[in-house]
Amino acid sequence: MTQTEKQRGGNPRKLLVTGGAGFIGANFVHHWLQQYPGDSVVVLDALTYAGNRSSLKSLESDSGFTFVHGDICDTTLVEELLINHGLDTIVHFAAESHVDRSISGPDAFLETNIIGTHSLLKAAKKVWIDLPVADGLDPVDHRFHHVSTDEVYGTLEPEDPAFSESTAYAPNSPYSASKAASDHLVRAYHHTFGLQVTTSNCSNNYGPYHYPEKLIPLIITNILRDQPIPVYGDGKQVRDWLYVEDHARGIDLVLQKGKIGENYNIGGHNEWLNIDIVNLVCHLMDEAFMADNSLASKYPEAISAAAGKSCELVQFVTDRPGHDRRYAIDARKSRKELGYKPWESFESGIRKTVSWYLSNPQWWLPLIKK
């Protein structure tokens, strides 16, 4: 028995992590198996465009790790995994999450984020509650943790207080509407059927394994290919940025200390204008090329960065429909009840992120070429 198992009462957990080959999911799986080597993790991922097996490659030799290529909408498969692996915890990351894609093709978002979440809830209820009760047993001691987003709360004006757990939902895109619906389903399965659930709503994540269509990796990878960096509208949209490892730790704390049926906001206390993020990353890329002469030969296309002129790649484009102006997370409840606070400053986290992408072209280049 490991020290961490002793601290948690001696019982190793057996997790199903949906979407565990995606950005946040993969970082969470790495975090969990490092922190709790006595636990077992089954990753279920459909490997759509944003899912990447290579994000989990270093874990394939870990005896506590199992990967299953499958769809969360396959309720029978989920039931079989829960039963055959004796799983007692679901951490649900699997989601379509890119707002632009939800505008051009919302159907996939409703299918994955709403129907998929309901499929998981049905399977969990059946295996953890219905089947044991039918056999005259108590329900399995379990947890269904649902990972959501601050976008369900809508948008904020510059002087508005940050989103709290009591903020009314007001989603403005098909993506955020589908996530709001999934949040409500999770809540309903707790109040109606007694499923032991928690939900967390996070701010914008950044860090390793982030799919290159999202803002920060898009800036980095476009600079390395000397491609334009598109900035919506005036670039003055405000986002709260959270290093992905801090998010993983926040979910860990919810699983260890969170109250059943509660929602917890996990934020970075770190609001930035999009255009300021763009300029900062451009500066860090120029700085990296100046400090390391080998980068110019490693990335021969990065002409602007090699000349210290990455900002010249910035190109303002027409704003997207329904673009929320500001998000900000009030994480005081998580700090008070869970002891949560980010470990990474934005300065340290963004430098780690730039360094990771510079060091791992074998991960992101194949995605660019898709």
Rank of each mutant, 00 (worst) to 15 (best):
Gln196Thr: 13
Tyr189Trp: 15
Ile219Glu: 01
Leu218Pro: 01
Tyr206Gln: 06
Tyr209Lys: 10
Asn201Ile: 05
Tyr211His: 15
Thr192Trp: 07
Gln227Val: 09
Cys202Ser: 13
Asn205Lys: 03
Leu195Val: 12
Ile223Leu: 08
Tyr189Ile: 09
Ile216Lys: 08
Val186His: 06
Tyr189Cys: 02
Ile219Lys: 05
Pro217His: 10
Thr198Asn: 11
His190Pro: 09
Ala177Phe: 09
Val186Leu: 10
Val197Ser: 10
Ser200Ala: 14
Gln227Phe: 08
Lys236Phe: 07
His191Val: 14
Lys214Gln: 12
Ile223Thr: 14
Ser182Thr: 00
Leu185Cys: 05
Gln196Tyr: 10
Tyr232Arg: 09
Ser200Thr: 15
Ile220Tyr: 13
Thr199Leu: 12
Val186Thr: 13
Ala181Tyr: 06
Ser182Asn: 07
Lys179Asn: 06
Ala180Ser: 14
Ile220Pro: 04
Arg225Met: 05
Ile229Lys: 10
Leu218Asp: 15
Tyr206Ile: 03
Asn205Gln: 11
Tyr189Met: 04
Gly235Ala: 04
Leu185Trp: 13
Val186Lys: 10
Ile220Glu: 00
Asn222Leu: 04
Lys214Trp: 15
Cys202Thr: 15
Lys236Gly: 00
Lys179Tyr: 03
Tyr206Ala: 07
Ala180His: 04
Val231Gln: 02
Val186Ile: 12
Cys202Tyr: 14
Leu195Met: 12
Ser200Glu: 09
